[in-house]
Design a protein around this nucleic acid. Structure first.
Length: 270
DNA sequence: AAAAGCCCCTGGATGC
DNA sequence: TGCATCCAGGGGCTTT
């Protein structure tokens, strides 16, 4: 569910309000992808200094240690003063003196993990292999092109793998490839520099547009105030199998790549 | 090192 | 209405 825009929209919706908050209590629901990594009571009295994002992870910096949050496929966060009794899928509550951050995640692919610092083995396992951030300055065309040259697999799968560039999930990979005029099946290593340049730009453009739209809310995504995004109504190919291409009117095609759906236009993407 | 497949889990949509 | 099947925005792990 949540790709970079959704995670960033979530971060922006509560980062200021939770900053400098003191943790009062931590409540756990059903197990998530990994154990918390410390006793919930260990976190009491720690102060949240800020919220960063790395790829699709949110990093809550504490005065000692940090919390890594991942929303998986179906997770969303809420931050509020009044907190009702936890529902079936509320699996983590971070109660602070400024409000409660609650993770709701029906499929429980999400995670909340404590790390003592950035060299903590768990933090390294989850973060060290991540590729470059597509927004924010470090995403250089020359590096992107060089990284693609060593990949014999399809460009779509390279984008989803996240070790070249982070944050691009299924929706935005499909959309970026459409904007760049590249078929998802094209071999990454064989893309011309012209096409790589178009893709490099398209990734940034699509992600920024999604960010400006509040992300995509396909099922249940909403930001920490419960507001939904509306980028899903603007997609050119994602979720539009059989419908006419907005550019050339040919029907959008659907294929499977690595157990995931790829949507593309045979007329606009070569 | 890179690539491909397999899982983890629940819920909604679809079809019989 | 009931049941089976398929599908879903991720990504670490194992095997090749």
């Amino acid at each position: 569910m949540p790709e970079l825009p959704e995670v960033e929209v979530t971060r922006l919706s509560f980062a200021d309000r939770i900053s400098d908050a003191r943790i009062l209590q931590v409540r756990l629901g059903q197990p998530l992808r990994w154990p918390l990594g410390c006793a919930p009571s260990d976190l009491s009295a720690r102060v949240i200094q800020g919220v960063r994002r790395r790829g699709k992870y949110l990093l809550l910096d504490l005065d000692r240690g940090l919390l890594l949050l991942h929303l998986g496929m179906s997770g969303s966060l809420r931050f509020s003063d009044a907190v009702p009794l936890p529902g079936t899928h509320d699996h983590f509550d971070l109660v602070t003196d400024k409000g409660t951050l609650r993770l709701n995640d029906p499929r429980r692919f999400g995670a909340v993990v404590y790390a003592s610092d950035s060299s903590d083995p768990m933090a390294r396992k989850l973060l060290d292999h991540l590729g470059v951030e597509p927004l924010g300055g470090g995403f250089e065309l020359s590096h992107f092109a060089a990284a693609l040259r060593s990949r014999r697999t399809s460009i779509k799968q390279v984008l989803l793998a996240g070790d070249v560039v982070v944050g691009v999930g299924n929706i935005y990979a499909c959309e970026a490839l459409f904007h760049a005029g590249i078929r998802p099946t094209a071999q990454a290593a064989r893309l011309s520099l012209t096409r790589v340049r178009r893709l490099h730009l398209a990734i940034q453009t699509v992600l920024q547009q999604a960010l400006a739209s509040g992300g995509s809310s396909l099922r249940n995504f909403s930001n920490a105030h419960g507001q939904t995004g509306h980028f899903q109504t603007k997609t050119m190919v994602y979720g539009r199998a059989g419908q006419p291409c907005h550019v050339c009117t040919r029907p959008i095609r659907l294929l499977r790549q690595g157990q995931r759906s790829s949507f593309f236009c045979v007329g606009c993407q070569t």
